[in-house]
Write a protein that binds this DNA or RNA. Structure first.
Lengths: 243, 243
DNA sequence: AATTATTGTATCATTTTGTTACAATAATAA
DNA sequence: TTATTATTGTAACAAAATGATACAATAATT
């Protein structure tokens, strides 16, 4: 359980943190043929936000991204891909952080480091919805999956950050051996196709998709899956682990 | 002519700048069938570096990138693409900046803001070698094109920044309507093919390349070019301007 | 006027992708 | 037990994209 925020808010000058630099993570999951995103809600504020945090002075930024994700959601061992830096002057809005701190019974001084302008580095990841059991940290009420088409109003520019992450995901779906964390270990060709269709938001041709995927040589066939449906049982596949 | 650096070094606390955040730009040009990169050399130090700088407190980061490029090289109206954030703790090396300031007759205090840890946002661009006449700013001896295969030793991690920029360029050459700034206004199909071959570092099939490029519908044929060679004159093409 | 080198394009082969079809088969219903 | 149903895996063919070769056109040179 994370109580780093308490350290951050009472530490008025931001000692031990890189000033003005934040991290925001966009964690995609896939369930019910919908893309989901992990969203935190801050206690007693009705503020929704991406899991984010700050960089320690003695830590790589990429390292910080992993730590922040773990401390805010409990998710670990996830490949995070850095996708953009959000650095517009207009993006930062001190009011939401003020609200969060006040809801916690802390009234920050006007020159509190968290109220200054921040530039945020965006990271995204794809995780297996069933295996990723997010748990909120001590300053959050909840840490939940939201469908992309049913997002609550988000703090600051987090909505734009998600949009940009989705664009990056769509552009990279083919190249990166994505789905690596996204589906459970074993899946059917139908599962994989529905994932692609959802991410790319378009129908794919079944026969061609299957031929293509098998042709890539990254799938191994495990066993048959008895689905309980009135039809031939599909094979189960898994990604071939690379050395 | 830029004398922002004088402001930066005498301003020991970094007032007016975002602390710990730098910008580095990788400007590619193409000449003699070679990819070139713009490199500055600092006066009296034999230190070579990418054109870089810092972000004003009242400015977007993307804006700052354009301003920095202009103030350090004189280049303007260039589309810069943000490609990565270099945030490893190990990357920053105060010694080179100390050397630069000392060579200018200024001995910075140990806690000078420029000697602290920096995270750098990388941008790259492609420019027409013949039109981009770089001019060094007041703290640089020179601002020159270097072949990618003949780079001098560079400050800090600038070499890795260039490598990463090149990878991004290679991955995006097809998608982005690149070459937009990279070749002169009018060019032959051969010019364009040599550019692609150099960036991708592989031979392309002439007939297929020509068919593909013409098929994209982004080229218009201007006129014939009398090259002086003992052969048929090639057509000149230019990119069709989009609305 | 013949020669040379390069360009633009046609032609055909090969590969990839789109489309349709069909046999295989697990569950269900008859 | 046997037909029915829905879905899967794959074959077969069509269409499109790409690779490879060839050749006519032609500006400069001989």
């Amino acid at each position: 359980m994370n109580n780093e925020f308490i350290k951050q808010e009472t530490n008025v000058t931001g000692e031990g943190y890189l000033p003005g630099l934040a991290i925001d993570t966009v964690i995609f999951g896939f369930h019910d043929d919908k893309l989901k995103v992990l969203i935190l809600s801050y206690k007693d504020t009705s503020l929704y936000a991406l899991p984010g945090g700050f960089v320690h002075t003695e830590e790589d930024v990429n390292e910080a991204a992993r730590r922040v994700l773990f401390s805010r959601t409990g998710l670990t061992n996830i490949f995070l891909d850095q996708f953009y830096v959000f650095g517009d002057k207009s993006r930062y809005d001190a009011s939401s952080l003020k609200t969060i701190m006040k809801a916690r019974g802390f009234t920050p001084p006007e020159d509190h480091w968290l109220l200054k302008r921040f530039v945020s580095v965006g990271y995204y990841a794809l995780v297996d919805f069933t295996k990723a059991i997010p748990t909120p940290d001590s300053i959050s009420d909840s840490c939940d999956w939201f469908s992309l088409d049913k997002l609550p109003p988000l703090m600051q520019d987090h909505r734009q950050i998600i949009d940009k992450a989705l664009q990056t995901l769509q552009a990279n779906l083919d190249h990166k051996l994505i789905g690596f964390n996204l589906l459970s270990d074993d899946f059917t060709m139908g599962d994989l196709q529905r994932l692609y269709e959802t991410v790319l938001n378009k129908k794919l041709i079944r026969a061609a998709f299957q031929r293509k995927m098998l042709g890539l040589g990254i799938l191994e066939r495990i066993a048959k899956k008895w689905t309980g449906g009135a039809h031939k049982a599909p094979y189960l596949y898994r990604f071939i682990a690379r050395d």
